[in-house]
């Protein structure tokens, strides 16, 4: 880890191994992990998902939210295991359905901050329909999609975001399907906050997640990550560090991208990082709330159906 990242955790490069008993107390961020949960995590060493977990905690903390008032809802996959380690209300659901569970929870508790945590397969393939409809409703949920371009937990099968020609265990001759642009899809479907960065840029993720959670409506943050143990191995992309470096080299900030000429943009192959889309639109549970008020205003009294 760079000095920069360590400093975010209040860690000293020279601090060395922290005694386990002091582990949770060693940083503000780690205090939001569950002290009664068995660690380490299930993720492979070098995985980018842990970086996203750190960013999420810092984002929630920066907003001064009560942990009791935050719920994390996850689907199935490596990324979806994130909530179990974190000291909030956590709901680990079925594959692809995190947003549908989250929709019910948000309707029941509009006052709570709901974050749906998904991988690319979870959100874009099996959960694609729920994704576009949650965006369409502009329901107050933050969708956090960690995009590592592969099904990691099941061992490296192609996902809806696997780049063209890249290999996967179910695309041994190269992927022939064009990948889904997650941010474009969310914007088109009605999301009111859409941002993207990578696990090489955790401070950007911190900021975007905080903004996403503050947005009164459906937000998407795409955290571009990598899977060195499946995708990287199959496609001979090197170690976690090598893949991390590619995230740095093959991405460009939105402000830099905006300065490119039209021709340069046309041939740009780098991942654009930044706030890509915002829109003002009423949030679903608030609209439903006004509907309830209207029904009452129309003097349709709450009914006791039976009785005299």
């Amino acid at each position: 880890m760079s000095e920069h990242i360590l400093s975010v955790h209040d860690l000293d490069v020279n601090e060395g191994q922290i005694p386990r008993e002091d582990w949770f107390e060693s940083s503000d961020t780690l205090q939001h992990l569950r002290k009664n949960k068995r660690f380490p995590t299930i993720w492979c060493s070098g995985c980018g998902i842990g970086v996203v977990m750190g960013s999420l905690i810092r984002a929630i903390e920066s907003l001064g939210l009560e942990n009791n008032n935050v719920a994390l809802v996850a689907g199935i996959g490596c990324t979806a295991r994130m909530p179990v380690y974190m000291d909030y209300n956590t709901l680990h659901t079925t594959h692809g359905r995190a947003l549908a569970f989250a929709t019910g929870l948000k309707i029941a508790r509009p006052d709570m901050k709901i974050i749906a945590i998904m991988g690319d397969g979870d959100a874009m393939a099996i959960g694609g329909n729920h994704f576009i409809h949650a965006a369409r409703r502009n329901i107050g949920i933050t969708a956090l999609v960690v995009n590592n371009s592969i099904y990691g937990m099941t061992g490296g099968q192609q996902s809806p975001t696997t780049p063209l020609d890249m290999r996967a265990t179910t695309a041994p001759y190269g992927n022939i399907e064009p990948p889904f642009p997650i941010c474009d899809l969310a914007s088109a479907a009605g999301a009111t906050y859409v941002a993207r960065s990578t696990v090489y840029h955790p401070l950007e993720l911190d900021k975007y997640l905080a903004q996403a959670i503050s947005n009164d409506g459906f937000s998407l943050v795409e955290a571009v990550s990598y899977c060195h143990t499946t995708y990287g191995r199959i496609n001979k992309l090197g170690s976690a560090a090598d893949m991390m470096r590619v995230l740095k080299e093959n991405s460009i900030s939105k402000s830099a991208y905006d300065k490119l000429s039209d021709e340069e943009r046309e041939f740009n192959t780098k991942t654009v990082r930044g706030v890509l889309h915002t829109k003002k639109r009423p949030e679903y549970t608030k609209v439903y709330g006004t509907l309830v008020d209207r029904v009452h205003e129309e003097a349709i009294k709450p009914r006791n159906y039976g009785g005299h």
Binding site: V73, A100, F101, T103, G104, I107, A108, M112
Partner: peptide, 13 residues
């Protein structure tokens, strides 16, 4: 599928 998921979410809430 979403309906069943949503009512579980609502019940949890």
């Amino acid at each position: 599928i979403a309906s069943m998921a949503a009512i579980i979410g609502g019940s949890v809430g």
